[in-house]
Design a binder for these strands. Sequence first.
RNA 1: GCCCGGGUGGUGAAAUUGGUAUACACGCAAGACUUAAAAUUUUGUAGCCGAAAGGCUGUGUGGGUUCGAUUCCCACCCCGGGCACCA
Length: 843
Amino acid sequence: MKKKSNQRGLTSLNKLPAYDHKKIEAKWQKYWEYKKSFQAKDQQGEASLKKFYALIEFPYPSGEGLHVGHIRSNTAMDIIARKRRAEGYNVLYPIGWDAFGLPTENYAIKTGIQPAVVTKKNTDIFRRQLKALGFSFDWSREINTTDPAYYKWTQWIFLQFFKKGLAYKKKMTINWCPVDLIGLANEEVIDGKCERCGNPVEKREKEQWMLAITKYAERLDKDLDTVDFLERIKTQQRNWIGKSEGAELTFKIKAGTNSDKQIKVFTTRPDTLFGVTYVVLAPEHPLVKEFLPTIENKEEVEKYIANVKKETDIERTDAGKEKTGVELKGVKAVNPANNEEVPVWIADYVLADYGTGAVMAVPAHDERDWEFAKKYGLAIKKVILHEILQNIPSDYRGRAGNRDVIVISDCFTGDGKMINSGKFDGKNSEAIKKEITTSVGGKWVTTFKLRDWIFSRQRYWGEPIPVVHCELHGIVPVPEKDLPVKLPKVKNYKPTETGESPLATISKWVNTKCPQCKGPARRETDTMPNWAGSSWYYLRYADPKNKKAFADPKNLKYWTQVDWYNGGMEHTTLHLLYSRFWHKFLFDLGLVPTSEPYQKRTSHGLILAQGGEKMSKSKGNVINPDGIVETVGADSLRLYEMFMGPFDQPIAWDTNNIAGVRRFIERVWKLREKVVQGRTLDLKLQKIIHKAIKKVSDDIEAMRFNTAVSALMITLNELEKFEIIDSEQYGTFIQLLAPFAPHVAEELWASLGNKTAIHTASWPVYDPALAADFEATIMVQINGKVRGSFVAPMNLSKEELEKRARTLPESAKWLEGKEVKKVIVIPNKLVNIVLVDNNLAVR
RNA sequence: GCCCGGGUGGUGAAAUUGGUAUACACGCAAGACUUAAAAUUUUGUAGCCGAAAGGCUGUGUGGGUUCGAUUCCCACCCCGGGCACCA
């Protein structure tokens, strides 16, 4: 393997001391900070550099310190950011703190320490930990959602919503825990009990601030087509928005003597209209109250409604639960298609806030209606016939045809041929949906599952909602010049018995003057949910210190939209949807230049504890990164988290495996002993390096970090076989390593005599001719089984490949005395010789 | 129930267009170095049969398509995540 001829004129380099991660990492972190290496430049106008905006979800600074999961996401985007810089982009990779939230507040309740103080302490810890990992964040743009200079603009945006009528107050029922004295979100109620204390939850009527996200439902759905999100993320967003098209049909009512009331129903299956055997209203439907005086079983109905009210939403919507209902006796609905009179029921399986809060029930073709009709003995009328079943007796069960097993259920929810449907008989049900809708005077409409966003919390640690309640003028927004409405200090952070925020107890703060009439007024004491600050933070990074606007339009024009946003799957529904909503609203006001905030969104898999459980403080299985940085270094930790498995999948932590990547770094360090100054033009060496450039570059773009690291390891294994490596090839290898393990890369790069830092060097470009192989291993198969192989030059002709395969000694014994049926030749890959075989049984 | 992932050695996992299954790493075993250990290093490491050469089996299960299937098709089982009576 010696390359004597190359040794002429090559000088060896100074010897390096042993690899000392602590010294090296501290040195380069200091260097980057001193040199402001990763500060993005705001550029405007024609001369501006091409920009790249890389974003990670800014962390919630919890008391537990940085989670190894943060490191996975941050390292991934750091690798991409560093590669982009090397490719000549002006990169913005910012960081901040999403610091409002319950854990901090609960800690304050317990200890009496101000949330602001706790937050300061926690962000200091997070900052130190993140800096110790060498992420190339632009620290000069650090933001904090709890900073009044930041939440001033969160409040300002809220006021814009208010002015456009998209922020409004609404009376609604909330889940109330009588022990914790707190309103709970539906997600916080488990089996009708408080998630925290386990006590049964009550319902309370309360005025809540709402944001009208439903006004944007259509665009939030449609515009997913214009962005580059992972398909499963788009699907999740679409499911959450829940767009559905169908018909709104009107049933006339007969209640007592002549009634002029009507019931509007929403259905996606107007084609089953002739099969309607009853109509169901949600118990909360406003018409129910109007019917009450005329119905025969008033008491029974009132009792039923009272029972339903007691249930929580979770109980009521539990799919496993048996449906219940009661007939409104004396009330009939008239089917607009055939004037048939059908009974009207109320039932818990119909939701008040979806569609029209009323449905037409077709038990023959809807499973829920089927279940309900069976239970209460209601009529079932078939109007659609499955294509395949059209000629089969209705009691037939079992095989139909050779392949399909059709079990005939009495409830058929598919499309088919229409029967018992008057003039529509014989037609295909799918095709006439719209026709049947218009024939009965119905409308074709779009509905969404998405509900308006409950935007108020009765808690302390959030942005105060910047309005006052005036006796004369009602709700009056705080003038923009008076923003921010600062959170006052309180003694006790515990929510009150009345369900009000602790802010309500500070009369000095609450009692104020109306901005309009200067008369007495009370401040709004509700605060915003912690989704608020994170709904626009990426815009603030463009101009984080601006006092006149949330960001200068010129900066926004240059930096938005975010080019690549990575975060956890847990935020791909709500946070992503909320921030897209805010962004679209700001876009409509002409305040941001794009209609979508993020061009590309990817997600990383969760890191689980050793054994596959979730990491949690209570289980005591949380990995503290500090210890790992201390013992093996940030570079090893970064490399391990990239190597541990596919980036988008959940994966269990295994401390033992860090040893492997640490060894790898030490071997890269040791390889430096073989490096000589200059270029050797060793073709074999160049080929190895150019293949690595291609593989590592491609893998980074596709977030296949695990195989990128593996490619670096394979490359190292190859390089170790050489006696001498020239500094140019070694330098290129170090450049490929640099985004993953930046500290050791800087050190080795400098040791090669480079006067400028590695992160300023341009990303290596591979030569396709060098990256390509000039020979290929051709597999020889007999009847599809590998029997041998030979090496051939690339692109050898099929004829020649077949000839060589046939003469291969390994194939000879299999071919002896056999007749060749056919030969398949795949250039550069394999030759498969298929024999006419009368001895062996055909597989 | 519906939607989205995934199932490959003792372990984490690779296989980019249907073409050498198990790359890379951990662990383990044996050897070298050492007084010894650690570290380092060399070799081996899917299972079964065999002294070896070699052969057979093998990517959750059962079928199918193909000269050839981890990859494509059909049916099913299991694990993870999301939604959940949305008419």
